[in-house]
Computed example of a mutant assay.
Amino acid sequence: MAGLADSGANPDVDLLYDINGLAKDAPHWFDRLMEYIGEYGLLLAMVLLVVWCWWSVRRRGGERAAASVAALVWAPLAAGLAVLVNVPIRGFVRRPRPFLDHQGLDVLVSGKTDFSFVSDHATITMAMGVALFVANRRFGLAGIGLALLEGFCRVYMGVHYPTDVVGGFALGTAVALLLSPPAMILLTPLLRAVEGSAWGGWLVRSRRAAGSRGGADSRGRTGDRASATEERDLAA
């Protein structure tokens, strides 16, 4: 598979040089910014996006709160599982990093000695973005947008081929979607049990949402008792 890295009439390599060439023309400070964003920043932004979605879901409450939180729990789990699946894939393909086979690349991150296909960063962000989309479309679209930006950054930094990124997107999407149904079957009852517990209910529903639900239940029970009293009075 190392032959994929050969130069010449190879659109993968041509696109690599085109995107990475932007780094050569950019100011030094911009390259350092892209280095941080591509290596750490977008991963952190994805985590914060999931936390933001969780905060929104638990404040809203509702009957499906446990299922919604379970879907959000699946997002980081899907990312971790996708990275584990990538371990044997990398070992089988054994594709060197592009800067090892091609001269003239502007490599923004040093010390990358592992194999190139597929990109872990692209896999993680797309798995989380797709899983987030399953839980909430609005937040999910933002997550997928972050994943696409991550893929661009990895090529811009000179550490991955475009096909490494596309492979990561495919792997992350496949794991997040195909394993979502069994994951929800396992996680939803667990989150419902947490929701009903005295120690972990706040993880699924905020106090305000829980209070609103309790108030509604209380009003419902009061109304039932009032109706029963009226029926007894009419019968007498």
Rank of each mutant, 00 (worst) to 15 (best):
M157N: 07
G151R: 02
D120V: 07
V118A: 12
W52F: 14
R154Q: 12
A75T: 13
A66I: 09
K112V: 08
T123H: 11
G61F: 08
A142K: 03
E39S: 13
G129K: 00
G158R: 02
S180P: 00
V130Q: 02
T173F: 09
A45N: 08
T123A: 10
C53H: 05
V47G: 11
S56N: 15
M46P: 05
S68M: 08
R95T: 01
H102F: 02
F92P: 00
R60C: 06
A66D: 10
W55Y: 15
A70E: 01
L132Q: 02
R60E: 14
D101H: 05
Y36D: 10
R64T: 14
F92W: 15
I144Q: 04
A147D: 01
A147F: 00
H121D: 10
G172R: 03
Y40F: 14
H160L: 02
A82H: 06
V69Y: 09
M34I: 12
L141Q: 09
I124Y: 06
G62V: 09
A70H: 00
A65S: 10
Y36A: 15
L146D: 07
R138P: 05
S116L: 01
L72P: 05
S68G: 12
L81S: 09
A66M: 11
W55V: 14
L81Y: 12
A79G: 15
A79Q: 07
V50W: 04
V107C: 08
M126K: 00
L44K: 12
G168A: 07
L72R: 06
L42D: 05
L48A: 10
V166I: 12
P96R: 06
H102P: 01
F133I: 08
S116K: 02
P98T: 00
L179S: 03
R138T: 10
L149F: 10
G41F: 06
R60K: 15
R90I: 05
A176H: 07
V47K: 08
M157E: 07
L77N: 04
G62T: 05
N136P: 02
G61K: 06
A67W: 11
